[in-house]
Write a protein that binds this DNA or RNA. Structure first.
Length: 897
DNA sequence: CGCCCAACGTA
DNA sequence: CGTACGTTGGGCGC
């Protein structure tokens, strides 16, 4: 059974607040009354993070009383020479203590001792009492306390990132075990404490001596034998070293008002924190308290006791043992799966398989299966009643597709679950999730489906137990994330949308799309030739060789040599983007500009084609990878190669699309687009009657909208008016400003403002909706799509105007872009299911946000068209119809419509 | 070799 | 001073 230990979090209040003080710019953190709050803010933010990530049962913070301590009595120069603590910092310490009061966190001081001594004493008591202890301190002296039960969280930069200093980590970083760290510090000295060490002796030398002579006592005893300048210095500074050793020893037997066992944390006082954060003007922190420390996590010992601990046993299953293991599992318990091998681009190969039911982790090698193992495994894998949890299950699906293994019953993908809970994380690596949600560390296996091997490294040497731990971690995470999904109201999105979509994507990737390499190669040659001509023309025009690809060299030529007028600034100089070059050409008519633009154009096309040719697999097809946890709005992304940004706007670009072709056994490619899906969603969400009726009018949307904005008959709308309205309509969904609109339409900001006013006069519902989106997001902390997909936007209450306004635009866009993404995902599921149920061979190849590309089998064309139109247009019921346009052709361009 | 930047392709 | 992505080459620093 799982056992658990209480967990004590100790924080050096002074040192962490001081770190925060220097990490956060004071000018961004002050209240309207002029109180600086950067240290309080940084400290509180750190505290919330650590409480969330570590889930301690017991918490205490220690402070220094003054600079006077028993150390200054023994050595009056101790900590001399330190710059005086700035008043701006000192005034914040009482505020930090008020925060701790409101959060019901015990804080302690003791006359004559430093905070570190208090922490050492509490850590000592905690270990005696069977606690795990975490010490959060920016003072390296704390490292001497590290052992199997005590971990130091040492701030790396600022206070937002903490490094877990375990015994192994201390050894790795300093070359000595933690109980020898004091010895090292004594030899090296500590400048900030005004404790000089042995001159010329740094951590490397000190570690070497300590290791060679078995500790400081040994080093001192052997001082006469140590050669060279360093040995000489050691002998000359022995008294300094001894003094350092005496002073850097932390006191661990103090008598304190509270003992470790009395530090139980029972959660914060909602009223008191709300009031205090109000005074401190910390708008975001109250939300973060609420959203990141859900009730379940608030220090309830019973809740923490439910946290899985690493107690599972590991066993290697020999040939013939898997069947028995699978059979004896409790079917109601989910099994965590982890696989090792190579996984990429729609295929995979499993070299190791680990399973965990929470009590036992087992490993086996599919290559060693006997017929009994094989049939038991296949039956288990395909049984939807056998509950499975996987992290990033696509790799497993790829490998299974290659061996025709059917997979069913995956009820949890921990990467997808974490994405639904927090869609804006940079990484959903298993290690990170385990740390975040289980508060434990996972030592990485080198080759797994969610962490593909580097080419050439096989998994033969894979640590079997490490893979077992991954399976165990996935299984444990599954339980915690299921709770989080429920509390974020997104459990349905995982079960009914993301997990089913995962299977469709895996199929699409395994299938790939046919490439006409002959066509692509001849295009490549043509683009290469034209690029070369452009280079020659550019060189001739300025009578000089230069690299046209280098913005830096371009700037030198244009602005220095030719003295052209300066363009808009970038971080590193002046922009040479296409728009700016076109502007310069209009002013100067210099032929080099035309050559550069031509080169840029054709070079981009060439690169795209190069990339595609390089991506053609042995089967003559291109297998992209779709990413399901990258875009914060819920969209998919595509890479290796990215098939969602293949050119389409120019003739030359469309030539590239002719390189994607229908293949043997199929009749045509078919493209199916949602027309104006984002505008339709805007109409639906805003319920604006004018916009809704525009969609029902049956006429061109932008013309209809323009006729109302300009108060003219639809027939009287000219091309220019339509263009402006189209730009604005789309811009609105992106949080476009009047200034931005004026830039895009090359009109004055006043004209743009007038245009927007007219627009909102006619379509007031849109304006009201856009306002309400931001208001609601600010209130709730997140936006929501039609299907309940959330995006958290803490920057909505940022003090930094740029960040805040960026978050506002993201808030405007996320429900619209995200709802479109949701609808498309539903459509994909319905189309895939429809094709399967009807027994059709036609298949989905690509998704490009609002477009699907299918490959249609002979004789299926009409049925597939009817099916796709139906399934796509009814993927969601909106206040306006969802229109789908369809086309067929031998290639992607011809199939466009 | 890894990182950032500018530039540019798509929806 | 319009959202969401991925890829590329140049340039810099390790």
């Amino acid at each position: 059974m799982t056992q658990t230990r209480p967990r004590l979090l100790l924080i050096d209040g002074h040192s962490m607040a001081y770190r925060a003080f220097f990490a956060l710019p004071a000018e961004n953190f002050s209240t309207t009354t002029g109180q600086t709050t950067n240290a309080v803010y940084g400290f509180t933010s750190m505290l919330i993070n650590v409480l969330r990530d570590e889930r301690p049962t017991h918490v205490a913070v220690a402070f220094d009383v003054s600079r006077q301590s028993f150390r200054t009595e023994q050595y009056p120069e101790y900590k001399d020479g330190r710059a005086a603590t700035p008043d701006e910092f000192r005034s914040q310490i009482p505020l930090v203590q008020q925060v701790l009061g409101a959060m019901n966190v015990t804080w302690l001081t003791l006359e004559g001792y430093e905070a570190d001594d208090i922490l050492a004493t509490l850590a000592h008591q905690a270990t005696e009492a069977g606690f795990d202890t975490l010490i959060c301190s920016g003072d390296r002296d704390a490292l001497q306390l590290v052992d199997d039960d005590v971990t130091v969280l040492y701030p790396v930069k600022g206070v937002s990132e903490l490094s877990r200093m375990t015994p192994e980590k201390v050894q790795e970083k300093y070359g000595v075990p933690p109980h020898r760290y004091r010895d090292l510090a004594a030899l090296v000295g500590e400048k900030s404490d005004n404790l000089p060490g042995v001159p010329g002796v740094g951590p490397k030398t000190a570690a070497k001596w300590i290791t060679t002579y078995d500790g400081l006592d040994g080093v001192i005893a052997a001082a006469d034998q140590i050669k060279g300048k360093a040995g000489e210095n050691l002998r000359a500074h022995l008294s300094d070293v001894l003094r350092n050793a005496r002073l850097n020893k932390l006191v661990c037997d103090l008598v304190l008002p509270k003992s470790a066992g009395e530090l139980l944390w029972e959660g914060w006082d909602a009223e008191a924190t709300a009031e205090l954060f109000d005074v401190l003007e910390f708008a975001t922190l109250q939300d973060r308290l609420r959203s990141q420390l859900s009730e379940r996590q608030v220090g309830e010992f019973t809740a923490v006791a439910e946290l899985p601990e690493v107690v599972a046993t590991f066993r290697r299953l020999e040939t013939g043992e898997l069947a028995g293991w699978l059979e004896s599992r409790d079917p109601s318990e989910p099994v965590g799966i982890a696989v090792a091998g190579e996984f990429a681009k729609g295929s995979g190969h499993i070299t190791g398989l680990a399973l965990s039911d929470g009590e036992e982790e087992v490993w086996c090698d599919p290559a060693a299966f006997d017929p009994g193992d094989e049939s038991a495994w296949l039956a288990w894998l395909a049984d939807p009643g056998r509950r499975k949890a996987v992290h990033d299950a696509k790799g497993l699906l790829w490998a299974c597709a290659g061996r025709s293994w059917r997979v069913a019953g995956i009820e949890m993908d921990t990467a997808l679950a974490a994405y639904l809970i927090r869609p804006d994380l940079r990484s959903y690596a298993l290690e990170i999730l385990v740390e975040r949600y289980l508060g434990r560390e996972l030592t990485a296996a080198s080759t797994t489906a969610d962490q593909p091997a580097l080419e050439g490294i096989d998994a033969a040497g894979e640590d079997e137990a490490a893979l077992g731990r991954r399976a165990g971690a996935v299984r444990d995470l599954a339980g915690v994330l299921a709770g989080e999904l429920a509390s974020h109201d997104v459990a349905g999105l995982l079960a009914d949308m993301e997990l089913p979509v995962l299977y469709v994507l895996a199929d699409m990737e395994t299938t790939g799309i046919g490439a006409d390499t002959t066509h692509l190669s001849s295009l490549e040659a043509e683009f290469a030739g034209r690029a070369k001509e452009a280079v020659a023309a550019a060189h001739a025009a300025v009578d000089q060789q230069f690299n046209l690809r280098s913005p830096k060299q371009l700037q030198e030529i244009l602005f220095e040599k030719l003295g052209m007028p300066k363009t808009k600034r970038t971080k590193t100089g002046y922009t040479t983007d296409a728009e700016a070059l076109a502007g310069l050409f209009a002013k100067t008519g210099h032929p080099v500009l035309e050559a550069i633009l031509r080169h840029r154009d054709v070079e981009k096309l060439k690169q795209t084609v190069d990339g595609l040719l390089a991506a053609v697999a042995d089967d003559g097809r291109i297998h992209t990878t779709f990413h399901q946890t990258v875009a914060a709005t819920g969209r998919l992304s595509s890479s290796d190669p990215n098939l969602q940004n293949i050119p389409v706007r120019t003739g030359a670009g469309r030539e590239i699309r002719r390189g994607f072709v229908v293949t043997e056994g199929f009749d045509a490619l078919m493209t199916c687009d949602y027309s104006q899906i984002e505008m339709r969603i805007m109409a639906h969400l805003s319920a604006d009657e004018g916009l809704i009726s525009a969609f029902h009018s049956g006429e061109d949307l932008h013309t209809t909208v323009a006729s109302r904005v300009f108060s003219v008959a639809p027939e009287a709308v000219d091309a220019e008016q339509r263009r402006k309205i189209k730009a604005m309509s789309y811009g609105l969904a992106y949080g476009l400003s009047a200034y931005g609109l004026s830039q895009q339409l090359t009109i004055t900001p006043e004209e743009a403002r007038g245009l927007m006013d007219e627009y909102f006069d006619r379509f007031g519902g849109v304006r009201d909706y856009l306002r309400s989106v931001v208001d609601e997001a600010r209130r709730k902390g997140y936006t929501e799509t039609m299907f309940g997909r959330r995006r958290y936007l803490p920057d909505l209450s940022s003090d930094n105007r740029q960040r805040r306004e960026m978050a506002e635009r993201a808030a405007l866009n996320a429900p619209i872009q995200g709802s479109a993404a949701d609808i498309m995902k539903v459509a994909m599921l319905r189309v895939a299911a429809g094709l399967r149920e009807a027994g059709l061979t036609s298949r989905i190849l690509l998704q490009v946000h609002d477009e699907l590309v299918l490959e249609v089998a002979p004789g299926e064309r009409d049925r597939v068209e009817a099916l796709v139109r139906d399934r796509m247009s009814h993927a969601a019921e909106l206040a306006v119809p969802l229109e789908v346009s369809v086309g067929f052709g031998r290639d992607w361009d011809t199939a466009a419509h």
